[in-house]
Write a protein that binds this DNA or RNA. Structure first.
Lengths: 133, 133
DNA sequence: CATATTGTGCTATTCGAACTGGAACAAGTT
DNA sequence: AACTTGTTCCAGTTCGAATAGCACAATATG
């Protein structure tokens, strides 16, 4: 597993790290049950602070992709059937978006909006209902 | 068009506004050639600063969804064939993600990573190549 | 049992970016 | 000419990321 991090990018380091690991898990390059390196070890390998690595690990744990145990480290969760369908759907969407010359940010925002369409709550209402055009 | 904004959310106001307009365009609820309300007018309607609205407009312009002209306002770009296929691909992906109980942030990060897989550049290399288990 | 390993929790600090806001300006419309 | 509308420059303030150190708890290992 090759991990490239760039502190100059706007994306936080812990997010870059989590993203690399996440993609590896979804793509099946890391098998369920496999153990990730210890946080302190990975931190010194990448020249990062332990907290940064642990934050990435905690993020992946909250997403249900890995498990964290004291003394045991981080272990990839075993998923039945894997994530092939998900990976395929992602690929299809990206292809379609590039056909439309849609930038990354716009695509992400659209996916985000669609994700929240179903169950989420708008919570606080800042403005009164408005109509235009 | 009903627009709900919430300054308490972590998402910036200009992004919330852009997101609402973007979804409306992609979903076809706003037709190509149609004119969006003037920035100052929309700002006072929503209780926002003009900059916030204009930043949302500028964002949509950079994404190729609208055009901005002084004295004329913001006009939705006319797209041949519309965005039906794109909207469908987004819907499919979100469904698949929810089947896997994948949180929104994780989904967005995966899409982002897939988007950059093809042409992007890793630029600066912060760490030496590393291997783990 | 004793020791080392590994994640958890807490507090604090520094740094930079991002968001919001005000005012003047430029280009187009009427 | 007057008005409308987006553009630009500048400033203030808030917020999060990253780092750091330390003590603690649970697990593994000998």
């Amino acid at each position: 597993m090759l991990i490239r991090l760039d502190s100059a990018l706007p994306t936080p380091l812990f997010e870059q790290l989590a993203s690399a690991l996440r993609s590896a898990i979804i793509d099946g390059r890391v098998i369920g049950g496999e153990r990730l390196p210890a946080a302190r070890q990975l931190a010194s390998s990448l020249g990062l602070n332990v907290h940064t690595v642990l934050r990435a690990y905690r993020l992946l744990r909250d997403e249900g992709l890995i498990e964290l145990h004291r003394g045991r480290g981080a272990v990839v969760v075993v998923r039945i059937g894997g994530h092939a369908a998900l990976a395929g759907a992602i690929h299809d969407l990206v292809d379609e978006a590039k056909l439309h010359d849609l930038p990354e940010g716009a695509l992400l925002a659209l996916v985000s909006a669609a994700y929240r369409s179903s169950p989420s709550s708008p919570s606080v209402l800042r403005t009164a209902p408005t109509r235009y055009s």
